[in-house]
Write a protein that binds this DNA or RNA. Structure first.
Lengths: 109, 109
DNA sequence: TGAAATTACTTTGACAGACAGAGTACTTTT
DNA sequence: AAAAGTACTCTGTCTGTCAAAGTAATTTCA
């Protein structure tokens, strides 16, 4: 399991990306992250919902209620045009950060 | 300039790596980071000295005073065996984190 | 000479992101 | 009917980073 303070700052990207693929609800996203990373990373509930709040306040995502077929009522999120633009920025930022950190990790692998 | 909350968590790695190369003092490290990253990232003074404190408390680095030839007295840091081992761990952690984040950024470049 | 710039380190207080823990509430399984 | 699983919310806390302000010595150059 990867320490979360090392993923810190990338959660917005990860969640926006998953919502870009299709509208999703919280629990689904948390499951999807565990699945795709093979349990190498798991987002904590409290963190996930904090991210939602942050993204919604910035108008990068929007919420609507879905069905209640399984357990509690699902709150779906969709990405806004602003959110799409922001994600694009985050992706190119990631490219740059990766380059920079690699600069210092090189020759130590 | 890269936002610092996206580099967050990697500062220990960066600084340990620079001290691994040779004993260094604070101001030198801050200059070296700016230089190597072409000013794409600059560590803030307060942050740098906070990192030193953290690493020293964990016995990953050790301090000694050097000359005073230019301005203030220089406080040099060297890496301990524990620090070397820790850096090694951080490097492999970075490889894993990179993989995980790439997983979510793929197809958006 | 002496004012300004540069080198070098320290401390304090504030902020933001992530999380543990606890709670609410509904559905499915056994 | 109890237990397990689904699904969201809230509060308080911790950690890393940073702005701002301070101390102090050396070098530059007018």
């Amino acid at each position: 399991m990867v320490r979360s303070d090392i993923i810190r700052g990338h959660l917005d990207s990860i969640i926006l990306r998953l919502i870009l693929e299709k509208d999703r609800y919280g629990y689904e996203i948390s499951q999807e992250i565990s699945l795709r990373t093979n349990n190498r990373f798991q987002i904590k509930e409290a963190t996930l919902y904090a991210v939602f709040q942050r993204l919604e306040k910035k108008e990068l995502i929007e919420a609507y209620y879905g069905d209640v077929s399984h357990g509690g009522k699902r709150k779906y999120y969709c990405i806004t045009p602003l959110g799409k633009a922001y994600l694009k920025e985050l992706v190119s930022e990631w490219m740059e950060v990766k380059e920079i950190i690699n600069l210092f990790m090189e020759g130590l692998e």
